[in-house]
Computed example of a mutant assay.
Amino acid sequence: MDLSDIRREYIQGGLRRKDLLADPIDQFNLWLQQAIDAKLTDPTAMTIATVDQNGQPFQRIVLLKNLDKNGFVFYTNLGSRKAQHIEHNNKVSIHFPWHPLERQVHITGTAEKLTTLENMKYFTSRPKDSQIAAIASHQSSRISARGILEGKYLELKQKFANGEIPVPSFWGGYRIKPESIEFWQGGEHRLHDRFLFSKTNDMWTVDRLAP
């Protein structure tokens, strides 16, 4: 297999400055809705990159759970590796790969913890099985066998069979406040279209980048 021979043309059309909305959050919402309407698999899936104390980058996929003018929200175990990285360095980047639409969005910003009220509101809206799983799994900790995790889950499921599940203290969310948002649209002959929104003093400016 020769990986260098794997390629395709991007033919779905370009992106012009006149097509962009003035606010990149509005532009992102437009593209996200189009990804949802196109029935893409996991349109809210995003790769989040953090850096540990040695400068080693790590990436993983999480789900976008809310978005407003203040930023992009996701939830996790607050003892997880990503949370430990954010505690040390809250500068992160996130990436949405919408391959069938020949689009990508890349965002840089800072991550801030959500309030207790925000965490509680979302946690109680989750399916009960997901609530139990959040308590059963101490994310990123080492376990000797999957059976241990499954056993803890079943134990908790029986414990909370007829009652409300409390929001665990080690679970919560982050809001990523964007500092830059780049929209990438594939173009023919590798002449892709890239527009970078940068935030300065609460104002957005936009520049076209060479592909």
Rank of each mutant, 00 (worst) to 15 (best):
R194S: 02
D68W: 11
F28P: 00
G79T: 11
N70E: 14
F72Q: 06
A45R: 02
R8I: 11
N90Q: 02
E150V: 04
R81Q: 14
I143C: 07
A161G: 03
R175T: 09
N77E: 05
L20V: 11
R103W: 03
I11G: 08
I61F: 01
Q27L: 09
D193K: 01
L196G: 07
I61G: 00
L156H: 01
G163W: 00
R60G: 11
T41D: 04
G109M: 03
H192K: 09
A49Q: 03
L117E: 14
Q33L: 14
P43R: 03
K113V: 09
R81T: 10
M203V: 09
T124N: 13
S80H: 06
E164R: 12
N119W: 12
Y75K: 08
N70F: 09
D23N: 15
D5F: 08
K69P: 08
T41E: 06
L32M: 06
F96H: 04
T76S: 15
P178D: 04
S144V: 07
S4E: 15
F183S: 03
I181C: 02
E164C: 09
Y75V: 07
Q84C: 09
D129S: 13
E182R: 00
I86G: 02
R8M: 12
D193W: 01
E9C: 11
K39C: 10
F160N: 00
D19K: 04
G147T: 12
N29C: 07
M1H: 14
R142F: 14
V92E: 04
T41H: 06
Y75S: 10
Q53M: 10
S125G: 07
A49W: 00
G79N: 13
E9S: 06
Q33C: 04
K199D: 04
G14N: 14
F28S: 04
I86D: 02
E155Y: 14
N119Q: 14
D52H: 00
I48V: 14
D52I: 00
F183A: 01
R60E: 09
P43A: 03
L154H: 14
T108D: 05
V105P: 00
S4C: 09
A111Y: 10
K82D: 02
I11V: 15
K128I: 06
D37M: 05
H138R: 13
E164Y: 06
T200Y: 02
M1T: 15
I61W: 00
T108Y: 06
S137R: 01
A133F: 08
Y122T: 13
F123Y: 11
I86V: 09
E179Y: 10
A22K: 15
G187T: 12
D26T: 13
